Simulated scan of single mutants.
Amino acid sequence: MSAADDVSLLTRQQVEERCAISRSQIYKRMELGEFPRPVYVGAAARWRSDEVAEWIGSLPRRGN
């Protein structure tokens, strides 16, 4: 099984929940080039789970 086999497509609501950001923040960050853009399945926007996970992993950690 390759890494690509672990990729799923997430709805906007799932992305909001995983990233703890609002719909407006998702689209604002996409416009700034700071968040992954969706792929489209028909007319439905979906985000690749691997790209969302990579974005989460890139967030800075707060020091103590």
Score class of each variant (00 low, 15 high):
residue 1 M to V: 10
residue 2 S to L: 07
residue 2 S to P: 10
residue 4 A to N: 09
residue 4 A to R: 09
residue 5 D to H: 09
residue 5 D to V: 09
residue 6 D to Y: 07
residue 7 V to S: 00
residue 7 V to F: 04
residue 7 V to E: 06
residue 7 V to D: 05
residue 7 V to C: 10
residue 8 S to Y: 12
residue 9 L to C: 02
residue 10 L to D: 03
residue 11 T to C: 07
residue 11 T to L: 14
residue 12 R to I: 14
residue 12 R to D: 02
residue 12 R to L: 13
residue 13 Q to K: 13
residue 13 Q to Y: 12
residue 14 Q to T: 10
residue 14 Q to R: 12
residue 14 Q to P: 05
residue 14 Q to M: 13
residue 15 V to N: 03
residue 15 V to F: 06
residue 15 V to L: 07
residue 16 E to M: 13
residue 16 E to A: 03
residue 17 E to A: 01
residue 17 E to I: 01
residue 18 R to G: 05
residue 18 R to Q: 15
residue 18 R to A: 13
residue 19 C to I: 09
residue 19 C to E: 10
residue 20 A to H: 06
residue 20 A to K: 11
residue 21 I to W: 14
residue 22 S to G: 14
residue 22 S to F: 08
residue 23 R to P: 00
residue 23 R to T: 05
residue 23 R to N: 08
residue 23 R to V: 02
residue 23 R to Q: 03
residue 24 S to K: 06
residue 24 S to N: 11
residue 25 Q to V: 06
residue 25 Q to S: 15
residue 25 Q to A: 14
residue 25 Q to R: 12
residue 26 I to A: 09
residue 26 I to Q: 08
residue 27 Y to I: 00
residue 27 Y to Q: 01
residue 27 Y to E: 02
residue 27 Y to N: 00
residue 28 K to M: 00
residue 28 K to F: 07
residue 28 K to G: 02
residue 29 R to S: 06
residue 29 R to P: 01
residue 30 M to T: 01
residue 30 M to K: 00
residue 30 M to Q: 13
residue 31 E to W: 06
residue 32 L to H: 08
residue 32 L to Y: 09
residue 32 L to A: 15
residue 34 E to H: 09
residue 34 E to L: 14
residue 35 F to P: 11
residue 35 F to I: 05
residue 35 F to E: 03
residue 35 F to Y: 13
residue 36 P to E: 04
residue 37 R to L: 08
residue 38 P to E: 05
residue 38 P to D: 02
residue 38 P to Q: 05
residue 39 V to C: 14
residue 39 V to M: 15
residue 40 Y to V: 05
residue 40 Y to Q: 08
residue 40 Y to I: 00
residue 41 V to A: 06
residue 41 V to H: 01
residue 42 G to M: 07
residue 42 G to N: 04
residue 43 A to D: 03
residue 43 A to G: 04
residue 44 A to N: 13
residue 44 A to F: 14
residue 44 A to R: 15
residue 45 A to P: 09
residue 45 A to C: 05
residue 45 A to M: 02
residue 46 R to S: 07
residue 48 R to V: 01
residue 48 R to W: 01
residue 49 S to T: 03
residue 50 D to N: 02
residue 50 D to P: 01
residue 51 E to R: 04
residue 51 E to K: 10
residue 52 V to L: 10
residue 52 V to W: 13
residue 53 A to S: 14
residue 54 E to Q: 15
residue 54 E to G: 08
residue 55 W to K: 04
residue 56 I to D: 00
residue 56 I to L: 15
residue 57 G to M: 09
residue 57 G to F: 12
residue 57 G to R: 14
residue 57 G to A: 14
residue 57 G to Q: 12
residue 58 S to M: 14
residue 58 S to C: 10
residue 59 L to H: 14
residue 59 L to G: 12
residue 59 L to V: 14
residue 60 P to Q: 09
residue 60 P to N: 15
residue 60 P to M: 13
residue 62 R to F: 02
residue 62 R to W: 12
residue 62 R to M: 10
residue 64 N to I: 05
residue 64 N to A: 13
residue 64 N to S: 12
